[in-house]
């Protein structure tokens, strides 16, 4: 098993709040890795640090064998990490198709001059972007919604669209921040199938989720954060029985 992402002693604080305290974890290529923890545990902060949205205060990250430069988010995306957001961030006034087309930005290179002259290369590239985006909409199961304004999609479809847009960047690691939040049971089942398909097709998945059944059924390994600290990391069945995890969720102090 090869490690895809190795985070070592990641620290992040906001003023007095230590949102991440020396968090280390390793995500292997090809797995679905769960990140759970009570509200405010630091899960989203961890995402923001590895995707370059926040600058970390300590620790280092190795991604695909290379130290990850997280000075700016677009470089992280370039390196192969794509993400979705806990409170969906779509380009509201653009159509679903255009949203995914934006995701191709990095993997295409049309310049100002190319666009103005509409050279053969640029036309071919545009057609390829459109075809790829159309294909991805079908892949996540919203092929019929290509022309719909992102803001008018249903909640579940918006989550799917965000995944399609992230996949458009051709990531090695897809990081999903609570993708099932607000979904009903049917939608969650569909999402689960989608995440499994993504993994089968070769993309490693990092998943933050509160839905315990989804995590337990889907993830190969799970890490638990509590008050910015990693308190457990193992296969779901073991993590579920870990007394520290149980007390973190129930709010009971753990007696050593």
């Amino acid at each position: 098993m090869t490690a895809l992402l190795q985070a070592r002693n990641i620290a992040k604080h906001f003023g007095g709040i230590r949102a991440l305290k020396d968090v280390s974890l390793t995500i292997n290529a090809g797995e679905i890795y769960g990140l759970i923890g009570p509200n405010g545990a630091g899960k989203t902060t961890f995402f923001n640090v590895i995707t370059g949205l926040y600058q970390r205060d300590g620790g280092d990250i190795v991604f695909a064998g290379q130290p990850l430069h997280v000075e700016s988010p677009h470089e992280v995306t370039q390196a192969g990490i794509a993400r979705t957001f806990q409170n969906i961030r779509l380009f509201a006034e653009m159509s679903a198709l255009e949203n995914v087309m934006v995701g191709r930005h990095l993997r295409s290179k049309g310049s100002v001059i190319g666009a103005v002259l509409r050279t053969a290369t640029v036309r071919a590239e545009e057609a390829a972007i459109r075809a790829k985006a159309t294909e991805l909409l079908a892949y996540v199961g919203i092929a019929g919604k290509a022309g719909v304004r992102a803001a008018s999609l249903s909640y579940g479809d918006q989550r799917r669209l965000e995944i399609a847009r992230a996949l458009a960047t051709e990531p090695k690691l897809l990081a999903l921040d609570e993708p099932a939040a607000g979904m009903n049971a049917t939608e969650t089942a569909g999402l689960r199938a989608l995440i499994e398909k993504v993994r089968t097709d070769g993309t490693t998945v990092l998943l933050i989720e509160h839905d315990v059944r989804l995590i337990m059924g889907l993830c190969d390994r799970v890490a638990v954060l509590d008050y910015g600290e990693k308190i457990a990391e193992d296969v779901p069945a073991v993590v579920q029985k870990d007394p520290r995890v149980v007390s973190a969720y129930l709010g009971v102090p753990y007696e050593q």
């Binding site: 995306t77 370039q78 380009f91 990095l106």
Partner: peptide, 15 residues
């Protein structure tokens, strides 16, 4: 337009 609509998401898309 992506930057206009959501700058953070635009960055995350690799822009």
């Amino acid at each position: 337009v992506a930057i206009r609509e959501d700058e953070i998401a635009a960055k995350a898309c690799g822009i």
